[in-house]
Structure formats: C-alpha cells, structure tokens
Nucleic acid binder design. Structure first.
Lengths: 164, 164
DNA sequence: CGCGATACGTAGCAAGTGCTACACTTCGTA
DNA sequence: TACGAAGTGTAGCACTTGCTACGTATCGCG
C-alpha cells in the first residue's frame, strides 16, 4: 500500500511528471526520463510510488484538474450561444500550452479505447469535465445539446491537430 | 532498399499484420508477436521487410484502402441529407469488425498528434478518405459543409468508443 | 547515547525491443 | 551439373523497460 511519507515531495514529483507528460507525451516517458525531469533518481521514483502506473495516474489526475480550471478561465460562466462555445473552445489550439495539453488528450484517447487503465477512467473524467463546462454555459433549455456540442468540439480539435 | 523478391508472400504477410493490428492494436505488436500472427519467424519478417516501420507502413496503407472500401459499402453513393450521413457513420460502431478498425483509428490519431511517422501521413490520408466519402454523398451546394460533418462524425465516434 | 524510520546511492535483474551474424538448404537456370 | 539467388533455422547482440536487493547516511526522539 502507498506510504504516507514525504507528501510534499510526492506532490512536487507529481507536478514535474505532469509537466513532462504535457511536453513529451507518453513516448520517452520511462521512469528514467521521468526521474530526470523530476530532478531525482529513478530509484527514488519507485521509493515514493509503488508502481509507475500509480505515478502516472496521479499525474493524470492533477492534469485533469488543471485542464478543468483552464477551461473555466477560457470563457466566463454565463449564458452563451452554442456557436460561441464551439469557437472559443477551438481557439484554444492557438495557445501553445493548451495545444500541448490537447495533444496529450488525444494520446490518452488512443490508449483509452483499448481499455487500458488508468487511461480509460481518465478519459471518461476529462470528457465529463468538458461536458459540464459546456452545460454551465448553455441556456437551461439548451442543455440537452451539450453532448452534440462536445462532439463537434472534439471532432474539430482532432481535425485541427492532425491537419497542422 | 526494399527487395523485389517474394511479392506474393510479402502481400500475405502484410495482410496478416493488418489483421493483427486491427485485433490487438499497437501494444503487444512487437515483431515477434507479428511474426506469430503471420505464421513465420521474426527472422523472416526482417527478411521480407527492411525495418519494422516499413512493415507497419504497408499494413496501414492496406488498412486505409480497406477502410475506404468499407465506407463505400456503408452507404450507397447518392445525394443524402447530412443528418443521415452522420447517423449511418455512427452506426458503424454496431459492426464489431468496423468497431475494431475505429479503435485502431483513434490509436493512430494518438500517435499522429506527436508527428511520428508513418502515423501522421496515415492519419491525414484516412481523414481525407472520410471527407471525400462525405462529399460524394452531399448535394453539390452542400459540399462545403463536409469538414463540419466530418468533425461531427469523428467527435461522436470518440464519445461512443470512450463511453462504452 | 542508541534506535528505528526516513531517505538515498550503486548496481543489477529478468523480460522485452528491433535487428543481425552465420550457417545451412532448396531451387531455378545456364 | 554447377552455381548463385532465394529462403530459413538458431542463436545472440545491444539496448530499454519496470522494478529490486543491498548497503549506507541522516534524522528525530526516547
């Protein structure tokens, strides 16, 4: 079971690993590369985390939170027409930081479709966050359109990233 | 450079590898596993193909063709309202064979967003095939909507596969 | 002081990766 | 029938993967 020791250090490591994942993606993210990014030895990584999967899961959870927060900053929470929600979401590819996160998102999707954890759960959570974000900006009588709008956003983002 | 020998055998190997990829995805698709699926030794795989990348690229090219053919069978080539195009495309997740191909597609996307070849080129090609498929079914005055419809389809497929 | 928990370095293992060296047979053709 | 190309088996290399064994330094606390 996971130890309760070195909480502050753990959190700092998780933050470093999250940054690494956004920058590099999942290729070249072995424990040695992650350890370098976090400024310690791979030996220490396995000291603070029982398995690599545990480490990745925590980093992804952190990124999920950050992503949700970034979304909220993107557009104030008020009644907004669907078209504006879509165009605002699409504009996020202009921001290099957000674009890197989106690349990572589609990598997670690629892993999640095979059902491998923790990617499946992470993907569902992120999708839910997107949908909630959209719902909070739609007029109440429009909320049922959220999934359709989400699909439009995801599809357009995919096209934008692949056609770059 | 690639040799011109054993063309028939090569094609049969490529077919086997393509089937393997659809079934298994890219994880557990090392040359040894691919060799077993193709019914020969990994040694022979490297005899017919200079690198693994060459083999994968050819298998993906074959799958791209097959996918385009499968799409054409899905809906006859005639003027069709956008909504029907979308719903027909979405119904493809009901067919297990097509669903497996779609999973692979999103895996390819995950690799392509980092620009790693041959996935980037393959992804662009498949996207183009989808778009052409849609265009051929739209009234001429509706063709400009093809990218938007494609986005809707891709987004809905993503949601369907992830929420399963 | 002494002792146990926390923290860390060095080295390495077992399995898997793409790929290769070398020896051998089988075969079509001249 | 001889000879070179095509085809194949056995073994292994160099490297990366996640993870571990073992020893030691440091620290708070009784």
């Amino acid at each position: 079971m996971t130890q309760e020791v070195g909480k502050a250090k753990r959190e700092q490591i998780v933050q470093s690993v999250a940054n690494h994942l956004v920058r590099e993606g999942f290729t070249n993210s072995g424990i040695r590369a992650l350890a370098v990014s976090a400024g310690l030895s791979d030996r220490m990584l396995m000291y603070y985390f029982e398995t690599k999967e545990e480490l990745i899961a925590e980093a992804l959870a952190l990124l999920t939170q950050n992503m949700a927060a970034a979304l909220d900053q993107l557009l104030p929470e008020r009644q907004t027409p669907a078209a504006e929600i879509v165009s605002t979401a699409l504009a996020s590819t202009q921001n290099p930081q957000l674009q890197a996160s989106l690349r990572l998102w589609f990598e997670i999707v690629g892993l999640a479709v095979r059902g491998t954890e923790p990617y499946g759960q992470t993907a569902k959570q992120i999708l839910q966050d997107w949908e909630d974000w959209i719902k909070r900006r739609l007029r109440s009588d429009q909320r049922h359109r959220a999934p359709e709008i989400l699909a439009q956003v995801e599809g357009q983002l995919l096209l934008q990233l692949l056609r770059a």
